[in-house]
Design a protein around this nucleic acid. Sequence first.
DNA 1: AATGAATGAGAATTCATTCAT
DNA 2: GATGAATGAATTCTCATTCAT
Lengths: 216, 216, 216, 216
Amino acid sequence: MIETNVTSHVEDPELVDRRRKQIVAAATKLFSEAGFYKTTIKDIAKLAGVSPGLVYLYVREKEDVLLLVLLQVVDAYAREIPSAIEGVTDPLERLIRAVDAYCRVVDRHRSATVLAYRSTKSLSPERRLLIQEREVATNSIISEALQGCMEEGLVRPVNVDVLTYQLVLVAHGWALKSWFFKSRLTLEEYIRSSIDIVLGGVLTEDGQVRWQAADI
Amino acid sequence: MIETNVTSHVEDPELVDRRRKQIVAAATKLFSEAGFYKTTIKDIAKLAGVSPGLVYLYVREKEDVLLLVLLQVVDAYAREIPSAIEGVTDPLERLIRAVDAYCRVVDRHRSATVLAYRSTKSLSPERRLLIQEREVATNSIISEALQGCMEEGLVRPVNVDVLTYQLVLVAHGWALKSWFFKSRLTLEEYIRSSIDIVLGGVLTEDGQVRWQAADI
Amino acid sequence: MIETNVTSHVEDPELVDRRRKQIVAAATKLFSEAGFYKTTIKDIAKLAGVSPGLVYLYVREKEDVLLLVLLQVVDAYAREIPSAIEGVTDPLERLIRAVDAYCRVVDRHRSATVLAYRSTKSLSPERRLLIQEREVATNSIISEALQGCMEEGLVRPVNVDVLTYQLVLVAHGWALKSWFFKSRLTLEEYIRSSIDIVLGGVLTEDGQVRWQAADI
Amino acid sequence: MIETNVTSHVEDPELVDRRRKQIVAAATKLFSEAGFYKTTIKDIAKLAGVSPGLVYLYVREKEDVLLLVLLQVVDAYAREIPSAIEGVTDPLERLIRAVDAYCRVVDRHRSATVLAYRSTKSLSPERRLLIQEREVATNSIISEALQGCMEEGLVRPVNVDVLTYQLVLVAHGWALKSWFFKSRLTLEEYIRSSIDIVLGGVLTEDGQVRWQAADI
DNA sequence: AATGAATGAGAATTCATTCAT
DNA sequence: GATGAATGAATTCTCATTCAT
């Protein structure tokens, strides 16, 4: 159950959760295919198997549906990436696993990720902020691991923010340019090449050694 | 005067060009601020200082305005990047200058670049294709320089497509995440860091030497 | 409830029927007065006492309203004329009663009949065909009775198609030229004179006798 | 040069006449095909080979074009029918020749005749009256011949107005129902049958004799 | 006289949102 | 809680008409 800031007229939280899942599932599909504006509440209701009126029992306005959809994506990031590095203590391994996990979540939510790029600006400022905050939070997982690597001398001193976004864009890039990559390489190849290229340039000799040893 | 595929009811090409520039300028501003769907033809006409009816003398439908706006951006890429590497023969220098130029064009068209990410999918398939073709053409400038570097042994063998997109995303990233970067570094720093990180990992020793010598 | 080929977004057939009656009544009046093109959906909605949006729950486009209006007229023909000759076996009596009934229905739907002449061509080809088919069906009532008369030797051999249309135009003429006739004769006189003139010329002696006897 | 009541900004009457002919020819074609409302001034101008602005030098508003088109038709009637009976003194022959001529003019102006039925009501009341007056004038040719026949005892006493319109509708019917008749009979057959049917019923014995003798 | 670009009012249609049942 | 009919504001697009050149 995601913390949403979206209010509902319905009391029972169980029900609210179940209904919203229904609505969000339908909306994600439709928004991804046709975009936010070309998708109507009626479309969503029909695909979700409910009446248009019902949607408004669980959401104050159409934009709330978009917010719920986008929260679902950023929350998948915020859930799945940490769980991929749980228990791993070596900062370089944490970093590589985090990037790998990021790419894989993006792959699983490819169209929703693209949707986030297209539609975040369709949100009102406060709602947009909500999404951006969570994205920053996700990215801090990467930047903290990176920081750790630098502190242990595995990565040479570079601008952390830039490198972090470089890595984030590696992950997002898989979704954004899937129309280009799809016919050219697999996800595995993409991850390996990208990490190789980006990290190759910043690892110290110690880092190189550790990387080879790690065999990730 | 951009080749557009967009038909007009007006004969005089001079006039068509002038009016379209007026319309596109207004539309770029408004689309960037509020998005394609929240911007009305009336808004555009008012900002451009013309009547709503006039817009339809130069454009068949609203979506054509979006196409013209996006063509303007991708054409800025297609014009400015080649001109930045004109006459330069060293492939590494070509590559670095191209990336540098790319970042600078993006910076100059920051909001329109973001608009392209948001709105390309709002175009009809044929129009979308038109934009994507030109993007691919632009990117091939990067990938050809890269290929040249590899052939001369300045860059070690890596997946050209992946690295090309890495570099493209460096440029686009400046626009996409400007809300994050703006308060953290300047464009110059961003370019230097990004090239350092990404190229650092792929240059051969020869490449390193050439790079230092080049002093770009 | 007329079979219409017009689709509605509303499920309940009772309601669809009621609402369409409301809309068609208003539209008939307005189309007759001002014509199809000068009448707006807003006009219709206002006169029908509903919102403009509601009209589109019962009709896909404005032209559908015209179709419904015209169907209503041709259906009045197709319903009322047969009922006027039901049970009558003598073909001459059938013929005369049919023409008489036709004139009376036309009189009751005078302006809608004129509307049909003005506006059938405003329909798309398929819709136009729908109307023409029903007109032909109505006319076949006349032509069959006529055929019967000829077979029984009550009417001398003449071109059935031509005579049928002659009789149909007698009926339609009452509506088409009402601006001329209205001040000159009553419907009764018009019917009597017309039948006298047209049938007078084609009845055989047997037919004449039968006619006098029938006292219609 | 038709007396039109339509004013022009252009002085030279020769030119006015020539230009209007151009415009009316184009408009007749387009109105007949697509109707008054679906035809734009631009369409007319283009087909006439002039600019949209020029039309307004010869006409005050779009409806004037319709008036000119319809005047052209009723004037063809008013010119051609009298010329067909010129010099003929026998009233029965005048009548038959008039009807015959009427049918033939209608045939030559078939689509414009249908247009008159569709579009006369699109005219403003004064303009509509203008057309109706001329129609009545044309019809009086028929009714006068008819009157003559009755006075000479060739036609039995019937309602002149009704019979006149019967005959007028014979002529108009050929245009109105051409979609039905076209595949069934020729104009010649249609005229012969129609006159046979309608006059057959009203001729006295004298009239019959005269008719056979006349060999029309 | 002629042109054709420009205007702007007006129309059809859509759809988020409400509310009686 | 749920439904789905109803609302009406808002939007795109058209086109008769004008007017500077």
